[in-house]
Write a protein that binds this DNA or RNA. Structure first.
Lengths: 198, 198
DNA sequence: TTACATTTGCTAACAGTGTTAGGTAAAATC
DNA sequence: GATTTTACCTAACACTGTTAGCAAATGTAA
């Protein structure tokens, strides 16, 4: 009964051909330009074959997102295992999270839906105007030692990152985990930021 | 010579009709389902008329993104003006940023490209697995007082927000502002977080 | 070996999308 | 009144995701 097994193997081959071709496209041109027809063309099968393996286009992208989560998890775990002290562990995990995201941008984009067609050109949008207000306040909040401009700029970026991170996580989740918890997280993060200004 | 002026007014009317119809669609069904044809249908003009007012679809969305930045800027400025103390100003600005984003989700999405088709269903992706590792480290890093689970969970969310915010800002920008600055921001934010654990 | 059933893969279509070329009729200018 | 300009539309091009229906190849049973 090796025949059906060979069949299964060949089916699996097609499936992984779809995935590898799709992933190459996503890496090279971004997830927005992934197309079922282009995949079919590349693996030299007709279009409906793809629908025998994946319910739709989104399912293919979800596959990559999940793979991204698995990879990230592993990296974070490995980073943690290199240290004993919990504070060092946290720092190492933050580092590995950071490294993973920047070395695997397309994974991260798929995982968290970051980056759209709009505003990718860079100068398409006027960017922020609030940077001035925030920086001014930071400048005054920092103890009157030297407070060089670079330091203020750094603190501004930190402040903004905290805000943006919290907001974009909150905005993504369909189930509103609990509005109060999120407000507490915001306050907690801002509190920590302010304390660390000193 | 009021004729040409009336003409200009009427042209402006069409333009704003496009924008208001488009904005309604974006608000109701998300930016991904905005369609030139649907706009044309709604304003009772043919499709090419829209291209007399906007270079392409992206330009319409960019219009909204810019409007979002203007609105956010104003909100942040107003929040700041309500206080004198810089620390209170920072807290108020964080609050207003937060409120703006959650009350104007579609603006924020357009401004920063948050949220994609994929993973919007919620359970489409397995979400994270690293939450366990991080929470465990946090639990051990917190002074051995009470450390109720809620507190650990809160700290985990803060930690993650900081990471995600920094990463997604970094990933979006086309011009790599300076890799070193970003690494410093990460370290700064993590440092502040750890200090605030006590 | 023949008859039926299943799997496999295809063509072709449906219903959309953004964008643009080219033509017509009305309005403004000369 | 003739001519240019503007406003606007139809129709097409080149794509997209998705699916219905058919044909051939294969596997199973009588």
């Amino acid at each position: 009964m090796g025949i059906t097994e060979r069949r299964l193997r060949e089916k699996e081959k097609v499936r992984s051909a779809i995935l590898s071709t799709a992933w190459q496209m996503v890496k090279e041109e971004g997830w927005q330009s992934l197309s079922i027809r282009k995949i079919a063309d590349s693996i030299e099968y007709s279009v409906p074959v793809i629908y025998d393996h994946f319910e739709n286009k989104e399912a293919i992208l979800a596959e990559f997102a999940n793979e991204g989560f698995r990879l990230l998890s592993k990296k974070v775990q490995q980073a943690k295992e290199k240290h004993k002290d919990p504070v060092n562990q946290l720092k190492a995990m933050a580092d590995s999270y950071w490294n993973f995201a920047l070395k695997n941008r397309e994974y991260y984009r798929l995982m968290y839906g970051v980056g759209m067609a709009c505003c990718e050109g860079g100068s398409l949008c006027d960017k922020e105007g609030f940077d001035y207000f925030i920086m001014e306040a930071i400048k005054r909040a920092i103890p009157k030692s030297k407070q060089p401009d670079a330091h203020v700029c750094l603190k501004y970026h930190t402040f903004w990152s905290i805000l943006h991170g919290l907001v974009s996580i909150k905005i993504m989740e369909s189930s509103p985990v609990s509005g109060e918890l999120n407000k507490m997280v915001l306050d907690d993060a801002v509190e920590g930021f302010v304390k660390n200004l000193a």
